[in-house]
Design a binder for these strands. Structure first.
Lengths: 209, 209
DNA sequence: TTTGAAATTATACACTTGATTAATTACTGC
DNA sequence: GCAGTAATTAATCAAGTGTATAATTTCAAA
């Protein structure tokens, strides 16, 4: 009986592969389905190998979560561009309610992980980091946006607007990604932009460009 | 060695106890922690008994989810009262962003279950039912509310408003329940009501009553 | 009080899980 | 080419899982 052949990979590559395999498993089978064996199979590797790159399965999952959130925010932020603030904000919103950010697979992974945040401190920390980053980004853009329009809003007001807008985006993102509604027939981007403009007291036409 | 004493319970009571124990387990330990033994312990019962009331563990969990969602919607709807539509809507919103609807434990359970919806058809169905009910309630209230104000909005417009409002409530509910922000210092009810009024194009003063 | 049926317990089983370790293989530097 | 190191495999373990079933106990009816 001969052993299966294999080839070595740089540490970073193997880690990435394992994380990607973990995310795939979670997306398709849920967190419970992301067993060591399942992940190893998808990564084309043997279960024992995981322990060489991650102390625990817990660490692997946490690493996968961190990667996932970071990528998610990066995808959303990539829609910003570098024009005036209201254009950046519009870009962020558009990116948030369309693929690949708003997407069934993305939601599945997010949901699976979110479910652990309350009972797992490690996951809670990983979550807090990523969430804070997104909220800060929105708050900054909202602030610039209002200042750009001559509105002199207090920091408190800006914060409240950011909180509400963040909530709206979260909710829209979930609804759209879930796909239950007949969103396919609607222009989700326009709905999202108009709602945002209304909330911030800005002329909607400015967002539609 | 003598057996532990026990006493019989009506079927409905035992089922309720088991469901309650399941929800407690999920809230504190996550879905993975809601094992047959854990649930049985919390219900003051032996693991084997579960099988007498639920065919599978899967059925038990699905039943727990259905109960949870139904209760959640009932709690939210209980805030409506029976006045004019805009008062009912305000009540629904207030209830949605305050305890016991907006609450860490509630969010934990919701999140844990949501994570299974994508990979488990049974859970997906249970989810769809409850979600639809809430969305219909909002759509109806929004419709009445706009009609009450003399606005003659098309069904399409009402639908879009309902979708956006639903998203906003979902997002606010999540943020508040998560508790990460310093919401304690803010008047979340006022924020929610004002945002809603702004979105629907209604005078905010009318909501504050 | 006795009896019988149904609820509950206790025990056990087969399986999966994450983890551990020794044997083997691939690759790097000489 | 060759040797040594480190990555990878293979095999195994103990613990925990959901499930099944037989032995008990409770309780209501007679």
């Amino acid at each position: 009986m001969t052993r299966r052949t294999f080839h070595r990979e740089p540490e970073a590559v193997r880690q990435n592969d394992l994380i990607a395999a973990t995310l795939d498993s979670v997306a398709e089978l849920g967190l419970a389905g992301a067993t060591v064996r399942e992940v190893a199979n998808r990564a084309g590797v043997t279960p024992g190998l995981i322990r060489r790159y991650f102390d625990n399965k817990e660490r692997l999952v946490a690493a996968a979560y961190r990667t996932f959130i970071a990528d998610l925010i990066e995808m959303a932020a990539a829609g910003c561009g570098d024009g005036p603030a209201h254009t950046q904000l519009a870009g962020l919103i558009r990116a948030s309610v369309t693929a690949p950010v708003a997407d069934g697979r993305t939601l599945s992974i997010w949901a699976a992980f979110i479910g652990t945040v309350n009972s797992d401190p490690v996951m809670a920390e990983a979550h807090r980091e990523g969430y804070q980053a997104f909220r800060d980004l929105i708050e900054q853009l909202v602030g610039e946006c209002l200042r750009e329009r001559g509105t002199d809003a207090s920091q408190q007001t800006i914060r409240q607007h950011a909180i509400v807008l963040n909530a709206l985006l979260d909710g829209l993102w979930i609804e759209i990604s879930m796909g239950g509604d007949d969103f396919s027939r609607m222009d989700v981007v326009r709905i999202a932009l108009d709602s945002t403009a209304t909330l911030l007291g800005i002329d909607p036409a400015e967002f539609r460009e």
